[in-house]
């Protein structure tokens, strides 16, 4: 439980951009859980739509996590070649690719 409270504290003290990222990530997790529960309850027809929707949440979540890590100044040593601006551009590019693929998949 201490873990949980310390995580929430960390979030409260974060700079605004981080908060934004965190909010988006939480929203994605909720959306994914909702879709998964729906699939369990109602059945997985049509399977490609379920996969598409669910993977969209997972993929976006992962991209956001990547963005979060890359933007954190603490990790500057790890990401020598990737400036925060570059990280954001990469994020946009990855997200566009993801949306395009999922759109094709759902149909």
């Amino acid at each position: 439980m201490d873990v949980f409270t310390s995580l929430v504290n960390a979030h409260k003290n974060a700079p605004p951009r981080m908060k934004l990222i965190d909010i988006f990530m939480v929203f994605l997790v909720l959306s994914g859980v909702v879709q998964f529960i729906f699939c369990l309850l109602v059945g997985n027809f049509p399977f490609n739509a379920f996969l598409g929707g669910f993977s969209a949440t997972v993929g976006q979540f992962v991209l956001l996590a990547a963005l979060r890590t890359q933007v954190n100044p603490e990790n500057k040593e790890e990401f020598r070649k990737v400036s925060p601006e570059r990280a954001f551009c990469d994020f946009v590019f990855g997200s566009l690719v993801l949306h395009f693929i999922v759109y094709h998949f759902i149909n």
Partner: peptide, 14 residues
């Protein structure tokens, strides 16, 4: 380290 995470998860998802 984070680079592994970033690279692999992006590759796998997309």
């Amino acid at each position: 380290h984070s680079r592994v995470y970033v690279a692999y998860c992006t590759w796998y998802a997309l």
